[in-house]
Nucleic acid binder design. Structure first.
Lengths: 255, 255
DNA sequence: GATCCTTTCGGTACAGCGTATGGAAAGTCC
DNA sequence: GGACTTTCCATACGCTGTACCGAAAGGATC
């Protein structure tokens, strides 16, 4: 009923069995080739034919390793998340806020290295290393004694905040990278033509105020990473307010 | 250099000129048909041939109205955002936090009605009614005297938070709707099979704690809208902390 | 009314996609 | 040396977006 999650593919670790014609290619190689393609040109330039060509292999041979294109993408995501699995855990003596902020930053950087993850249409797959990251995100909030459902909510929201911000900012950098135009150049020229050809200052008063106050300067918004740190800090402040007044821990309830 | 933004399509209001063979179809009709298709089956079931068939029109005739499939999607997004343009503005006497929270909730509901917006690969288009929403999001933060770049950051982060949360939660509801299985049923069966076939409690200690504490009960996480309100409230608390201590307004600087 | 001009219509065609099918090939095991 | 098992991959099918271009349908002009 629900095997669009590729659970067997992700979790079933069947050994190769030894018999029969040996495969010219391992699953890891296929996944790595897919990641290379996606890193270079985004998810929509990842075609089975291209990956097969990169590996010097027939197209249909890939399907002995990955079951479908969607399955390949899911495996690629798992592989990408594996890059950070070991660095996520909360360290000895690390304050919970530092841990949460560091994890957020780690995820942000991961999206920076593999922006195509953000183009994945569905929810993040239930993959081993994706779960590892989610588990790490829950930890700081559980440790400060937030109730279970509040911890879950807080962690999910933090993750969504990072993901949403990454989508908003990275996608433009992608566009820049594809067209080869420099970021400042691209941004200013686009804004210039847009601003004095179409923009109606009376229709968008807030943006107009921001524009003249310099709030849209490229280095303030997307180019710098400041937006992530600021947003995460604000969100964690909100969580801190919620946990401090009640004491150190207000009855987690649960193992 | 940059006409993948469809600026002409979105902002250029050329009148139909009168002469020549009259069109059998208006742009609004095409966009409406596209929205109907996408509402029913998601963006990946939106094909030009389908839309044309729905309108009883040849496929290529659509291209006199929309320039490309991507242009159609962009117009559909603009049209969807137009649904809420009039309800966004801050009301008389409305506290800034209420305004921001209401706007966030409005966007959330919009995503609920048209989940396919979240499947759009690129950044939100520079469309009239999308800008209207962005403008509204900036307003509360500007009004409390946050500096220009901080206002921009805060509004973008709030928007990204809503978008990220919507993507995380809605996509699963989508899946449920497509397969026709009830939500609770689907979730519990998936979790049951996953939990006791693959899950390793030692590998994911935080999730294990949450699981046994009931933090993953469906009604607490995705099904309820509580997660949005909680996350937005926490984030706005963080912003409030940031503006209160400095006084009522700490020198916006700008028009 | 006939002609020209402008615009839209839409059939055909093409390149690309994911992948089902199934015979050939290449190993291990008895 | 069969028998068996597994992989390889050429071919084919249906689907996609859309370039091309002659045909059609209206207004404008004579």
């Amino acid at each position: 009923m629900a095997d669009e999650h590729h659970l067997e593919l992700l979790w079933g670790g069947e050994p190769p069995s030894g018999r029969g014609r040996p495969a010219r290619t391992t699953r890891e190689q296929v996944v790595a080739a897919g990641i290379a393609r996606a890193d270079a040109g985004g998810l929509h330039e990842l075609s089975m034919r291209q990956v097969a060509a990169d590996l010097g292999v027939g197209v249909m041979s890939l399907y002995t390793q990955v079951e479908s294109r969607d399955g390949l993408v899911v495996l690629m995501i798992d592989r990408a998340f594996a890059e950070v699995t070991d660095t996520l855990g909360r360290r000895d003596g690390e304050p919970w806020r530092d841990a949460a902020a560091r994890q957020a930053r780690t995820l942000w950087d991961l999206y920076g290295r593999h922006p195509w993850i953000l183009d994945h249409g569905h929810r993040m797959p239930m993959a081993p290393h994706v779960l590892a990251l989610e588990d790490a995100f829950y930890t700081p909030f559980l440790d400060i004694g937030l109730p279970a459902s509040a911890s879950a909510n807080a962690a999910i929201a933090l993750r969504s905040l990072v993901t949403g911000l990454a989508r908003d900012s990275r996608s433009e950098q992608d566009q820049v990278r594809r067209t080869g135009v420099g970021y400042a150049e691209y941004w200013s020229s686009l804004n210039a033509v847009f601003w004095d050809r179409y923009f109606d200052e009376e229709r968008y008063p807030a943006m107009t105020r921001l524009w003249y106050a310099g709030g849209f300067a490229a280095e303030d918004i997307l180019a710098g990473e400041g937006i992530l740190e600021r947003a995460v800090a604000a969100y964690l402040d909100g969580i801190a307010v919620r946990v401090q007044p009640g004491g150190t821990g207000q009855g987690t309830g649960g193992a």
